[in-house]
């Protein structure tokens, strides 16, 4: 792997990780609103309102890096996983629209119930289908010469493994959001409330993670044995597991930043472990062939200019994002009056 390719893969990985953390917290706020039956609708929305647009740009970055740098990965996924992606896109449209409507529409009346439900349902729906797409990319049922519509466009993703990955993604999103919310409320009773949700969702994530491994095994995708055979992945899995009691303890003590950092590390370990197992594969096909970072990479001139654009992006975007978070995320969301 050339340094150039390594740099692009690094940015791709960072974008994906940030999307999981920031976009995930964002989706999670909607899921949590559902789980808590709208208890803190206002605060949940206020916590994400100033940053939510920026949180979703990461997925665009992932997409652009894929179609510029690894074009056949992008075209294979969008072609054969058309249906789950379409579902995710509908979720993205509804979620964005209803969030904006709810936030900027006047008054409080029945329309807001519709916005709230549209927003909550799409907050679950969208990460579910995105997770499903991710699972389907690696499962190995994408058939480049399909015999039928079902073989080509349904079977690759409509299976228990992809569904388990979708569910796992949804739970992780809600978990990140709950931990994040601990720092967004100031009353100790509220903090305890979200800390409990965080711990509960974490407790749910562990068996669902197990289901992911089990459904993979049943589908003939030996994910667990691959984890065990890859030292880096095994180490990551170990870290994620060791963090479980630490996070539970930190949540119990309502340590806002410790919890956030540990949860961030845990998610990075899960994602990193998975990609360590699969590296350099991005898509597995039914005929056993694989689309990898190496065999799909665009020519060096393309990668070089992509790298230039990414560096420009990093130079512009990182300080600006930092400023945004510095302005709005210095204290709990409910500690001050938000302009609106």
């Amino acid at each position: 792997m050339t340094p150039l390719l390594a740099f692009i893969v690094f940015v791709l990985a960072v974008s994906l990780a940030l999307y999981l953390l920031l976009g995930g917290a964002d989706f999670g706020a909607g899921i949590l609103e559902w789980l808590t039956r709208g208890r803190d609708q206002r605060r949940l929305a206020d916590a994400i309102a100033p940053v939510w647009e920026a949180n979703h740009v990461w997925i665009l970055l992932v997409i652009v890096i894929l179609f510029v740098g690894f074009p056949s990965v992008y075209s294979t996924l969008t072609h054969y996983l058309h249906l789950p992606l379409l579902a995710a896109l509908l979720g993205i449209v509804f979620r964005g629209a209803f969030f904006a409507f709810r936030h900027y529409d006047v008054g409080v009346d029945p329309a807001h119930r519709l916005y709230a439900w549209g927003y909550r349902i799409s907050s679950v729906w969208t990460p579910f289908f995105l997770g499903m797409t991710l699972g389907a990319a690696f499962l190995g049922r994408i058939d480049p010469a399909p015999a039928s519509f079902v073989d080509g466009f349904v079977a690759p993703w409509l299976n228990t493994f992809a569904a388990a990955v979708g569910l796992f993604t949804v739970v992780l999103c809600a978990y990140v959001a709950a931990v994040f919310m601990v720092g967004e409320v100031s009353a100790p009773s509220d903090q305890t409330y979200y800390a409990r949700w965080g711990a509960g969702l974490l407790a749910a994530a562990v068996p669902i993670g197990g289901v992911v491994f089990w459904t993979a095994h049943r589908a003939g995708y030996p994910l667990l044995s691959h984890f065990l055979a890859t030292p880096a992945a095994l180490a990551a899995l170990g870290v994620a597991t060791l963090l479980l009691p630490l996070i539970a303890l930190s949540l119990r003590r309502r340590r806002v930043w410790t919890s956030r950092v540990l949860v961030g590390l845990q998610l990075l370990a899960i994602l990193g472990g998975f990609f360590a197992v699969e590296f350099p594969t991005l898509v597995r096909l039914r005929d056993g062939s694989e689309l990898t970072l190496l065999n799909t990479q665009a020519p060096p001139a393309v990668l070089a200019w992509l790298a230039v654009a990414l560096v420009v992006g990093v130079v512009v975007v990182f300080p600006a994002t930092g400023y945004l978070f510095w302005v709005f995320k210095q204290g709990p969301a409910d500690s001050d009056e938000r302009a609106g």
Partner: peptide
């Protein structure tokens, strides 16, 4: 994708 992707990447920024 690889040919006209540069403006898309800049657009992202």
């Amino acid at each position: 994708g690889p040919i006209f992707g540069l403006p898309f990447a800049l657009e992202g920024t």
